[in-house]
Write a protein that binds this DNA or RNA. Structure first.
Lengths: 154, 154
DNA sequence: GGATAAAGGACTATTTTAGTCCTATTTAGG
DNA sequence: CCTAAATAGGACTAAAATAGTCCTTTATCC
C-alpha cells in the first residue's frame, strides 16, 4: 500500500500525453481518446491540473490544454500535490498541532523525517524522467481507433 | 496525501510502547490504556503484528505481547508491510502485469523507480530511530488514569 | 475448573475515492 | 451576431477502502 490514487496515476498519463504533444493544443476529448480514459474523468483531471498551474487552458472553439512548462520542471511531487493535496505520510504532519492523540502519541515527529525522505524522492523525479522509461507501448486498437479499457472489471 | 492509514500510525504507537517495555509482557488491555487507543483496535492491530512476526504473543493468563526483535531491526517499511501489505505506489507495481490500461499506459515503469526510492527511505528508518525523536509526551490524565481521546471529533 | 488473554473472523459504519452530469462562460468562425 | 466547440465549476451518485466493534474458540496459568 502507501499508494497514490488511481486518479493521480491517470493524471500522470494525461501529462505524459501533453508532454508528447507540446506543440499542439489538445482538447479533453483528444486526450481521452488517446489515452483510453473516459472523457468526464479526463476533463475533471485536466481542470484540477489547470487550477494548480501544471497545464494551461484555452477556452472556446479550438481550445484545449497544454503543458505549462518543460517536463523537466514538473516533478512527481508536483503532480501528487496537484491531485491529492500536499504529500504527507501521516495526518499529523499535514495539519500539525491538531492531532487528537497528541498527548499520547510518542511517535509524532518521527514520521516527519520519513516524510522528508519520501518528499525528496518525489521531488527528484521529473515528468521527463517518467517519460524516458517509456517503452513505446503497444496500444489496443480496433479499426484504427484506440479502445477504451476503462471500467473493465477483473 | 500519499499517506499511511490511521491504523498503521496507531500500530507504530503500539510498537513504540512495546519497545519501551521490552522486558515485560504487555496485554492488549495494558497497551490500550497506556496509549489511549480503544482495546478492540489495539487487539486487532497486535494480532496482525503477531501474524507478520513483528511481535510475539503468549496466550492464556498473564499472556500478552512482546516485541519480537531489537527496535533497530524493525524498519518503517516492515511496519507498513505488516499492516497495509507491500509498499507500492501504484496498483500496477504491486500486481504487475495485470493493469487494465497496460496497452495505453505510457508511464508504467516510471513509478516503479519512484517506488524504489520511497522503499529505500522507509527501509532506512528503524523503530529505534522513530523512538529517538520522542520528546517525552505529556499525557492527559484524570485521577491518575490516562484518558482515551479516541473518537473525538474535530 | 475457572479466570485470563490471545486467535480468528464476521460484521457494521464511516470516510474516501472514483466517476458522471448539468449549467454557465468563453471563443472561433461563418 | 449566431452557433458550435470548448473549458470552468460544482453538485451529485456509486463504489470501494478503512476504521472500528463484537463474538466465539483456543490456550495457559493457578
Amino acid at each position: 500500500m502507501l499508494r497514490i490514487s488511481k486518479l493521480t496515476d491517470y493524471g500522470t498519463v494525461l501529462l505524459a500525453h501533453l508532454a508528447a504533444n507540446r506543440t499542439s493544443v489538445c482538447s479533453a476529448a483528444d486526450v481521452a481518446s488517446a489515452t483510453g480514459i473516459a472523457v468526464p474523468t479526463v476533463s475533471k483531471l485536466l481542470k484540477s491540473l489547470g487550477r494548480t498551474g501544471l497545464v494551461t487552458s484555452t477556452r472556446g472553439a479550438n481550445g484545449g490544454y497544454q503543458l505549462a512548462r518543460d517536463p523537466r520542471e514538473i516533478s512527481a511531487a508536483d503532480i501528487i500535490d496537484a491531485l491529492e493535496g500536499p504529500v504527507s505520510i501521516t495526518e499529523c504532519s499535514a495539519t500539525d498541532g491538531q492531532c487528537e492523540h497528541e498527548g499520547v502519541c510518542s511517535v509524532g515527529g518521527a514520521w516527519q523525517r520519513v516524510n522528508v525522505a519520501i518528499r525528496r524522492a518525489l521531488d527528484d523525479v521529473s515528468l521527463h524522467d517518467l517519460l524516458r522509461s517509456n517503452i513505446p507501448a503497444p496500444q489496443f486498437q480496433f479499426a484504427g481507433l484506440p479502445i477504451s479499457v476503462e471500467n473493465k472489471r477483473k
